[in-house]
Nucleic acid binder design. Sequence first.
DNA 1: TCTGGGGTCCTAGGACCC
DNA 2: TCTGGGGTCCTAGGACCC
Length: 431
Amino acid sequence: MLYTKCNKKKIIALVDCNSFYVSCERLFNPKIKNVPVVVLSNNDGCVISRSTEAKQIGIKMGEPYFKVKHLVKKNNIAVFSSNYALYGDLSRRVMNILKKFSSCIEYYSIDEAFLDLTDMIIENINDYIVEMKKIIYQYTGIPVSIGVASTKTLAKVANFLAKKKDNGVENLTIRSSNEINSILQKIDVRDIWGVGSQLSKLYKKNNINNGYELKIKNTAWIRKNTNIIGLKTVAELNGISCIDFNDGENAPRKSCCVSRSFGKKVETLQELEQSITSHCLNAAEKIRQDQQLVKSVVIFIKTSPFDQSNFISLSKKVDLPIATDDSFVLLDICLKALSEIFIKGQKYQKAGVFFLGLQNKENYQANLFSIKDSEKSGKLMKILDDANLKFGRNFMSVGDVGFRGSWKMRRDYSSRIDTSDFECLPTVNSG
DNA sequence: TCTGGGGTCCTAGGACCC
DNA sequence: TCTGGGGTCCTAGGACCC
């Protein structure tokens, strides 16, 4: 049944921006063009983007910053806090260009997209992707790698190869199956898309060490020892496309989470209330933007998981009788839930809000008990959202978000670049 | 009061991704 | 001293029903 959809060989391209966050910072700062650069996660916690030079020095993806600080110092690595407003803006520009190369496109992440080229009339795929890469660079300054293959999983493999090549593109659809097999033999099973730390442990224990060994593994064994996703990965390595292509531009979100670690540990209820308030309001704004309503709410607070002996994680779920997008209602629920789970005397490290069971507002409206109330609330929420859009996040707020709380996120190395700010335009000297 | 099996639905938790 | 955030999907197991 898994295979029935696949009667025609597909042509799928995966476009992936190279060291995306680093590339974004480099656009506005030519001085860091050929030097090692890293970008840190929120709170300056971990390394989440590395330039080629930084990779060569041995900085690993996801490593805590404090553990590599000595390497940073010794090698003069340029360090940046993440600036998601900037990355989001540049991502949109790249994706807009990709739209011109295929009408069937899946925005997979901030720096990646799948393009289905199956039904397009293209004389030469290789020329097409070389052109695509060139245009993206010319229009945005962002370098990308492009891999093409008959399935998403193989397109990931192709992209993995493309990243190591000078021209930055790889097309597996023109390679023989023998060539593909020998390529897969050289790829560690952990590097196959869909194989994470747990699966790779299981595979290696059972002598499946590379992509080829996974490809030829008996499917009954895979089914018995993993799950449907494991089975799909194997099918895809065999050229059978069975992972859905999600080209719905606005596939609605099913859940929405806003959470943050604190810049320093938090012990008081008041500070937790401020952070939960801020997260709740931000999440509410997000779902209103998407015309969605919330059916249940979860809030959580936890101490640091790295302090194993003292780790606690507290949470509470509340189901709403009527789905809503009203910040007042949601905030009320969140703060009440917080007061119920709060335990004194703990050093909290993180707090967050989940909105679950999101549903489309249009479809739900008719079920509301009081249309009038919801209209009133809708107008008020719109004023709130418009003001915050115009004057910046949290300009207008409903509760106490503690404007200068010492618990707020650390961002010590931000480039503070804003693409809507003229001051940030680079200066060009003509002579 | 004791007995069985099979179905659905829901949820918590885990694994994975970037 | 200092270890990100936001998603999706799948499964096992419990509750409930007949």
